[in-house]
């Protein structure tokens, strides 16, 4: 495990790492393969903050920083890419208006934008329960990338980014979502597991498909409410 103590990394090594992470997030390779044991949250915060030495979003303890930097092995990570026949600018604009996300993210009840960086998320959970958390945008590159992380008091720690990249051969824009979340134990953990389903990749994939349908076809294909025999 290289760089297990990020606070002791020499300056030139830090710069090298940063370049490497920036290129993994912005490049064509599988992001999660590059991530290995590192935490996505740590990387996103580091890249956004300009160095691997960072104080986190709300002045976290050294132990927490180290955890973020090296990652916790029970994190659930998902990476999914879809090509959409629209410009990166169109797709970015729709997504950046976070309150529109529940249109195609079925498990979300609402996203309330608090200010330019902060937002409040409410998700439907089984048995009529709701799960709520606040998120902060840690990196916002117009028409290219939006990265976010939950605040420290979130019941489910989650972070991720969505990247919009013009695809080769005039096929539109490749939209890549990379997400990581730490399921807590107990009842809440069980609820979260149900929320994201047994196959989080499929769920993120379905959400991206619906985003694509909305942006390309102008509506989300459905059969809900059609007649059937008894």
């Amino acid at each position: 495990m290289e760089n297990s103590m990020s606070t002791q990394t020499p300056i030139d090594k830090q710069a090298g790492d940063l370049e490497r992470w920036a290129s993994i997030i912005g490049g064509g390779a599988m992001v999660l393969t590059g991530l290995q044991q590192r935490s996505l949250k740590g990387i996103l915060t580091a890249v956004a903050g300009g160095g691997l030495v960072y104080q986190g979003t709300q002045g976290k303890s050294t132990v927490k920083q180290v955890e973020d930097a090296v990652g916790l092995d029970h994190a659930i990570r998902v990476e999914k890419t879809v090509t959409i026949n629209r410009s990166a600018a169109d797709l970015y604009s729709f997504w950046r208006n976070l309150s529109q996300l529940p249109t195609f993210m079925r498990h979300l009840k609402s996203v309330q934008v608090i200010d330019d960086r902060r937002s409040h998320w409410v998700a439907n959970a089984p048995m009529g329960q709701d799960i709520e958390w606040d998120a902060v945008i840690v990196n916002d590159e117009p028409n290219r990338l939006i990265a976010w992380t939950s605040t420290d008091d979130a019941p489910v720690e989650n972070s991720g980014f969505v990247r919009f990249q013009p695809s080769a051969g005039d096929r539109g824009t490749e939209v890549k979502v990379v997400m990581e979340y730490q399921p807590p134990g107990g009842m809440l953990g069980t609820m979260i597991a149900k929320l994201f389903g047994e196959e989080p990749e499929q769920q993120i994939g379905d959400e991206l498909s619906r985003f694509k349908q909305l942006m390309e076809a102008g509506e989300i294909a459905t059969t809900e409410g059609q007649p059937k025999g008894a």
Binding site: N85, R171, G172, K212, Q213, E216, A217, I220, A221, T223
Partner: peptide, 20 residues
């Protein structure tokens, strides 16, 4: 759907957007 990569290339039965 008439708007996706496949519909644009006359490959209508391969439309990306109509299978829920």
């Amino acid at each position: 759907c008439g708007n996706c990569f496949f519909c644009n290339r006359d490959l209508w039965s391969l439309c990306d957007n109509t299978n829920p």
